[in-house]
Design a protein around this nucleic acid. Structure first.
Lengths: 286, 286
DNA sequence: AGTAATTACGAGGTACGTAACAATC
DNA sequence: GATTGTTACGTACCTCGTAATTACT
């Protein structure tokens, strides 16, 4: 007895004729007819009342269909479990302190391993490190190299913070500014800037921050208000806003280097990705 | 994915090596090795951690074994149901008013259809008829032809009742006796004589009956006591007891003809048996 | 050495499709 | 006459067994 025969049986039950079922199953009528007879021989029982021009399930046939459905349902459960397993196998979870390095990494992976799916989650440094240690994620992207012996890390990309200053503001004429010079000014902040949030709050203790969640709204407000704002040189963060100039910030904390951190015993697709990123030059690393 | 592969998987799990499982399954090592690899390819997941000289289930493998066991258990349920069904198919239940005709029928069927199993049950005429009508049994053996239109019947055998009379008894010199002449005498009765029990109780209202269940004990008592007894000319009922003579009983009710009765719509093995018995001459039908 | 697994290769069997046929609606 | 099911026949594929290879205990 084979699973295929059980599938055929329930199809015949569903569609009523061998012809229709054969078409549905992409085999010929005679093939299906023979296959059913084999099943009957195997079970030692005829399953159909046969007319010359029609078939109908008899009692034994109905019993067989009942069992077949149960067996096939179990097979389907097995398949589903394995499909989920191989999906999980292909999915890499990343805890990152910033959005920019996840874009960088995703871009490379999509290009090289189109089947692999990257699912980044933004969180602070402590959470990211814990997620990695607890194996909740395959990778962490941190702004420093952790000193844990069972983990390996490689530099992924650098990112520099800039001030977006309206032309009317005197600071806009400068070639660079320091956090100290920006302190006490009110700022408009885009929420999705990751670790920069803590940096600016720490170094601009006297400034007020208006936080905007939506990037489009944030960009719109930039054009209409004269609040100061920040931008970085990460690819997707580089924005051109008319009436504003982008001034580098001199403080060392206005520059970060992101590291891709992983357990030393990673395997499978995570290992492939780690090797891929290790093999290439870090982005924007002056 | 095939059921055979699942069986192979659980065997490998049970025995620990591919070699041992292959031997158990009566195939060669390479065949089993390839079959397992096909399963792995099919599931898109390797199921074993492979050494050059050993295999061990990995997580996916354990999951697969779990599912496989469930599926195979369901398959076994299906097989069991069908085995029971074909056993039922081969088993013919008979309600009979006497033991002799069931022996006659069983003997013929065993000879012709060795696979068919006959299960006779002794009961009185009314019960037997009801059992047949309710389809609790496939056949009834009655001592008359029922007048039911949806049933068919054929004569099966005749049976004549004899008196077993000790030589000391004057009746033993007679060439025949009547019930009237036997009345008021005490009798030893064997319980397994079916419908004869009612016959003699009816026609010998003044006799006392000592009923014995065990045939061997009954025969033993016949030699030691001078009680009268009965015997019939049915093959297995013909007994020779020393010191006794077998005298025919003249009454018409001392003779019965058994009829095999069945529904007109019987099919399968019951139909085969009915036709077999219809084809041959009834036994002992003077 | 001995055991266990994998790879290579040839052979056999099994089930498929095509074609012809039978019998209903 | 169209649809549905079964039988006949040739073929292609697939899996098996044998034999050779590798590697571990």
């Amino acid at each position: 007895m084979e699973l295929e025969q059980l599938r055929q049986l329930v199809e015949i039950d569903r569609l009523g004729t061998i012809s229709a079922a054969a078409e549905e199953l992409h085999i010929t009528q005679p093939a299906l007819s023979r296959s059913v007879r084999r099943l009957e021989t195997d079970l030692g029982q005829s399953l159909f009342d046969r007319g010359h021009n029609s078939v109908a399930l008899n009692e034994a046939g109905k019993l067989a269909v009942h069992h077949a459905k149960r067996i096939l349902a179990d097979v389907r459960l097995m398949r589903d479990d394995f499909d989920a397993l191989s999906q999980r196998e292909r999915t890499i979870k990343i805890a990152s302190v910033g959005p920019a390095p996840t874009w960088c990494l995703t871009e490379r992976v999509v290009e090289e391993f189109p089947r692999i799916i990257i699912t980044p989650q933004l969180m602070d440094e402590v959470q990211a490190e814990n997620a990695l240690i607890n194996r909740d994620v395959d990778f962490a992207i941190l702004d420093r190299e952790p000193a844990l012996p069972t983990f390996q890390s490689i530099p992924l990309m650098g990112e520099n913070l800039f001030a977006l200053i309206p032309q009317e503001n005197p600071l806009s004429k400068r070639s660079s500014v320091s956090f100290a010079e920006l302190d006490e000014q009110p700022f408009l902040l885009f929420k999705g800037i990751g670790g920069w949030m803590n940096v600016v709050r720490t170094h601009l203790p006297h400034s007020q921050f208006i936080v905007q969640e939506d990037r489009e709204v944030f960009l719109g407000l930039l054009e209409k208000s004269d609040l100061l704002a920040f931008s970085s040189d990460a690819p997707r963060n580089e924005v051109e806003v008319k009436g504003r100039v982008r001034i580098p910030i001199t403080d060392s904390s206005a520059r970060v280097v992101y590291f891709l951190v992983a357990s030393k015993d990673i395997q499978g697709s995570a290992s492939d990705v780690f090797q891929l990123m290790a093999a290439q030059e870090p982005t924007n690393l002056s």
